[in-house]
Design a protein around this nucleic acid. Structure first.
Length: 503
RNA sequence: GAUUCCGUAGCUCAGCCGGUAGAGCAUAACACUUUUAAUGUUGGGGUCCUGGGUUCGAGUCCCAGCGGGAUCACCA
């Protein structure tokens, strides 16, 4: 075992032993009473210095500058960092400097967690610091941390940047990269803002099955698993739509769920096998209402999370201020290509797609062709949040047919930064129509479409009892978080993104 | 899944035309009672991702594998 340890790890284990031999427990059980955070001290001390004559603080050692009989050390807690000043004569009993000379100087390391008590003061160079009176080891760290330093100009040196190491050891990433910690605080705030917004409308947060006997509610390949006692195949949900609609049938006016969904597909910077959506269904509303609702909700999220309706994302400034642009799909295509395809039949669409050099093949039907043209010619260029409405019926087996436009459904997606971030419809509540749509999906499945939906008899039974007209929406929390936190990859908004096993 | 780039000390990275492995930080020892990328002096630390091949000789060239990044395809 010790053969595999690096030199620094061996030295730390030797320190651990030496600490024990001094009669000091390197992992004490007792709670350590903390009176102040770093932030509270740094903000409060300059205003009310008299309130900081006795503080108790705990944190991780992030750097040490030892100068003989005194030392400066930077401790990091959950909200920031603060410098402490340690003098041997202050923390040791008279005549015995071993606590300072042996424990502090020799056997403590960057990464160790300590608790201190003392008083706050300002150093000669003007830095608010804690003058330590007592020092307690709270946890000995046995592995060396990456050392990230920031100079006086704010330049970061030797940043811990290797994505593989950062994702595999997120705990290390969080310790040494405060901006990473900030991303996940913001993600939490995004979810909380949405939750409280929906709650003010009286909508009910619910939990529905993750293990499902039939997977439905989206077009995707599922993960498959097996229930031993029932000897049956179960699927990890790809969406929770069909369960939430059952609850609308059951009489709730509005239900929502923040749900992990699972799709057995490729991984890249926009896709992780498990991802989070919030789905919301509201009775007696339609997709027009939902656009207004979600516009307000997301504008509020932007303000709560970034302090502004304008968010810097890569090289763009994205404004979530209401109202957002609204295009029908045909309008968007005409806007970006100059071609009105609204009256075209399948052959004309195919020809047009070819002329636009959109990647199409002969198996594609009308709806798919329109979707391909949109996906290649419009979506990537929609940077500001934009509602695209009125999709071809073939692509939307759970959406209600448009009230006035043949061949279309009442559906919208919001596109932002060139990517879909939400998908919504006036929900199909005609059980006969829904059965026909499922049957059309079954046909697609027989022809080899692995993403075709299954026919869910119980869901149809629920619809046959009667579902009120309902507006529904799914919002991709990961992608929304990427935008709100200006992150390039989904891995950067997932605490533990999926990785291949380590060699 | 395809293409392409990458994998060297705990971390961040050099390593030329193939010739006995380098830097900074970290670490160890000593010095230093207001430092802050602390400083000074002196040390230690390597399965060069793995396995083959070419060669007198491979971190370096070739092949395969593993892992990661980017782009593309599928998808949200």
């Amino acid at each position: 075992m010790s053969q595999n340890l690096s030199e620094q790890e061996q030295i730390r284990r030797e320190s651990l032993l030496a600490i024990r031999n001094m009669g000091i427990d390197p992992y004490p059980a007792a709670a350590f009473p903390v009176t102040h955070t770093s932030k509270a001290i740094l903000e409060g001390f300059p205003i009310h210095p008299d309130d900081y004559t006795e503080v108790s603080f705990a944190g991780r050692i992030m750097s040490r500058r030892i100068m003989g009989k005194a030392a400066f050390t930077v401790l990091q807690d959950a909200v920031g960092k603060i410098q402490i000043y340690v003098r041997g004569e202050d923390i040791c009993p008279p005549g015995d400097l071993s606590l300072y000379d042996e424990l502090f100087k020799k056997h403590l390391d960057i990464g160790d967690i300590i608790g201190v008590t003392g008083y706050v003061f300002t150093t000669k160079t003007g830095e608010t610091s804690i003058h330590v009176k007592t020092l307690t080891l709270l946890s000995k760290s046995l592995r060396p941390l990456p050392i990230v330093k920031t100079d006086a100009e704010g330049n970061v040196h030797d940043a811990f940047t290797d994505p593989e190491l950062r994702y595999r050891m997120r705990y290390v990433d969080l310790i040494v990269n405060p901006q990473v910690r900030e991303v996940f605080i913001k993600r939490s705030r995004i979810v909380n803002t949405m939750r409280s917004f929906m709650n003010t409308f009286g909508f009910l947060e619910v939990e529905t099955p993750i293990l499902q006997p039939l997977y439905g509610g989206a077009a995707a390949r599922p993960f498959k698993t097996h229930h031993n006692a029932l000897e049956m195949t179960l699927y990890m949900r790809i969406a929770n739509e069909l369960y939430l609609k059952r609850l609308i049938v059951g009489g709730y006016d509005g239900v929502y769920e923040f749900s992990k969904d699972f799709r057995n597909e490729g991984m890249d910077r926009f896709h992780n096998p498990e991802f989070t959506q919030v789905e919301l269904y509201v009775a007696y509303k339609d997709y027009q209402w939902m656009m207004d609702f979600v516009e307000e909700m997301i504008e509020r999220v932007a303000v709560e999370v970034t302090g502004s309706t304008e968010v810097q994302v890569g090289e763009h400034i994205i404004s979530f201020k209401r109202p957002w642009k609204r295009f029908t799909m045909f309008e968007a295509i005409e806007h970006f290509t100059g071609i009105d395809i609204s009256a075209m039949d399948e052959q004309q669409l195919f020809k047009t797609a070819r002329e636009l050099r959109v990647h199409v093949d002969a198996t594609m039907g009308k709806g798919k062709l329109i979707d391909e043209i949109f996906g290649e010619k419009c979506e990537p260029y929609l940077i500001q949040p934009t509602f695209i409405t009125d999709y071809p019926v073939e692509m939307s087996p759970l959406a209600k047919k448009h009230r006035s436009k043949d061949g279309l459904v009442e559906r919208f997606e919001a596109i932002c930064n060139g990517k879909e971030i939400m998908n919504s419809f006036s929900e199909l509540n005609d059980p006969i129509d829904q059965r026909h749509r499922f049957e059309a999906q079954l046909e697609l499945g027989k022809r080899g479409d692995e993403e075709a939906m299954q026919l869910d008899e119980d869901f149809l039974r629920a619809l046959e009892y009667g579902m009120p007209p309902t507006a529904g929406i799914g919002i991709g929390i990961d992608r929304l978080s990427m935008i709100m936190t200006n992150q390039h990859a989904i891995q950067d908004v997932l605490l533990f993104p999926h990785m291949r096993p380590e060699g």
